[in-house]
Amino acid sequence: MASMIMASSKPVITVVASSSKPKHQKIPQLSLPKIPTPKFLKIQQVPTLKSISLLTLTSLSFAPPSLAAEIEKAALFDFNLTLPIMMVQFLLLMFALDKVYFTPLGKFMDERDSAIKEKLSSVKDTSEEVKQLEEQANSIMRAARAEISAALNKMKKETQLEVEQKLAEGRKKVEAELQEALANLENQKEETIKSLDSQIAALSQDIVKKVLPL
């Protein structure tokens, strides 16, 4: 595989290099690895890097040929101290983000998940609780209804008694008045009878005197 790629890329390099002779002298100036990079990187990349940077250089200078001189050497594959600094920065960022983001928020989310699960699993128990509560409510309602009906009955009885008492009182009063009136009438009758008796005696004497002249 690798040899095939190399084989296919070689002619391109030679063609490009031969087609741009004047720039060929510039190539050594391309600042490729300046600081010692890991060995394997160097061995692997130097040929390909050179060809790629060469390609970009030639393609950039291809459109306006007169500008080629103005364009600076393009250091696309310029490895230097930036690489280890970026590594250290990344590791620091990783630890910092772990401290402020991944661990605290992850822990928080897990705890919330488990709490929600717990609550969900305890829902079955609450359904029984709900039944109990409903029964309790029903019994309370029944008791209240009974109490209310008892109170109502009691009140009804009381009022009935009162009404009867008052009725009886009224009746007594009426009877007493009736009696009195009757007694009065009797008195008056007797009086009139008495007065009539005395008048009858006088009248009979008058009649006797007139009929039997002495």
Partner: peptide, 26 residues
């Protein structure tokens, strides 16, 4: 094209170098 290049200023592979202890960084 020259004018366009001046305006657009396509800068490829050009770096702003700092020196740190004898080493260069981008």
């Amino acid at each position: 094209l020259n004018g366009l290049y001046d305006i657009s200023g396509v800068e490829v592979g050009q770096h702003f170098y700092w020196q740190i202890g004898g080493f260069q960084v981008h």
